[in-house]
Design a binder for these strands. Structure first.
Length: 288
DNA sequence: CTGCAGGGGTAAA
DNA sequence: TTTACCCCTGCA
């Protein structure tokens, strides 16, 4: 672990609030100076926006430039993506403008699976608290600038954690799901390394659905927000259902709209960019 | 202060 | 297709 710094000059499509508040991640916290500090893949990084430049600094287990280029998806042309989406219709133009600084992070697959299992029927403050407690109890301590941080535990580190211990950390009915999924992954009933190599999104999705606590919505979130990085998925939660109904379907009762109908609509409207479209729409609607 | 609905879904009936 | 599920928060 080495203290390092990297400055990305003249960044476009990169706003801290948009990236960290758009619902994709749970381990970034705002500092008094407006920067954010987070722990990912064993690194502790602080990100600060200075004018149009982005300053990354922290403790890294490799070269910081490579690490943040990968994690923050810096090599993808978001300007082009936004332009394409904004041309679809007025709604997309508005939502893309609202979340113009969004980047879809390449988060660790294992951590993303566990995090989104915890997210089921739950709210963000509580999800963040649970993940923090899991990390503090079972992850590795990292000290940087006098403060303690904890890496997200590996599957191996959770191997002997009991359902009761999870319950004490506030997981509620998700305790058994975490326990079973950890076991399935350790036993390679679902092989995460194989998943990363599988090009067919539908096959990966089927595999993820085998995990306890992973249903359609959580599976799609994992596909989109982890380093599996699939944009041809459309996670449908209450907010996305709401925004899609308000903009395009206009049923009196949005809960009556079938998932199938929303999925079909998303595919024909947004095609292979539907995952990104979902994120702009979701973020826009939730903040409205 | 007590009571109760509901939250970024899943699994079982 | 409907319902219960743990825990916390907001609000009547």
């Amino acid at each position: 672990m080495k203290e390092q710094e990297y400055i990305l000059k003249n960044a476009n499509s990169f706003e801290l609030k948009d990236i960290f508040d758009c619902g994709q991640c749970f381990r970034w916290n705002e500092e008094p100076d407006g920067s954010y500090t987070g722990v990912f893949k064993g690194n502790v990084i602080n990100v600060k926006k200075i004018g149009k430049d982005v300053c990354f600094k922290g403790l890294c287990n490799g070269n910081i430039k490579g690490i943040v280029e990968d994690y923050f998806d810096l090599n993808r042309d978001y300007e082009k993506i936004k332009h394409t989406l904004a041309k679809i219709d007025k709604n997309m133009e508005t939502s893309v403008n609202h979340g113009s600084g969004i980047r879809i992070l390449n988060q660790d697959l294992w951590e993303t699976i566990i995090s989104f299992i915890i997210s089921a029927n739950n709210n963000i403050p509580r999800i963040k608290g649970i993940i923090e407690r899991i990390s503090k109890n079972y992850g590795d301590k990292i000290v940087w600038e006098g403060k303690e941080y904890y890496s997200f535990p590996t599957a191996k580190q959770l191997e002997n954690v009991t359902v009761e211990e999870y319950r004490k950390l506030g997981l509620g009915f998700r305790d058994i799901r975490l326990y079973e999924t950890t076991k399935m992954i350790l036993d390679k009933k679902v092989d995460l390394e194989k998943l990363k190599k599988e090009p067919n999104t539908l096959i990966v999705r089927e595999e993820l659905l085998k995990l306890s606590g992973v249903g359609p919505k959580v599976a799609d979130c994992i596909l989109l927000f982890s380093d599996l990085k699939r944009f041809d998925v459309f996670p449908i939660d209450v907010w996305v259902r709401r925004v899609m109904n308000d903009l395009y379907i206009k049923e009196a009762d949005e809960t009556k709209v079938s998932k199938k109908r929303i999925e079909t609509l998303a595919k024909e409207k947004f095609g292979d960019l539907q995952g990104l479209a979902q994120q702009y729409l979701f973020y826009w609607r939730r903040e409205a």
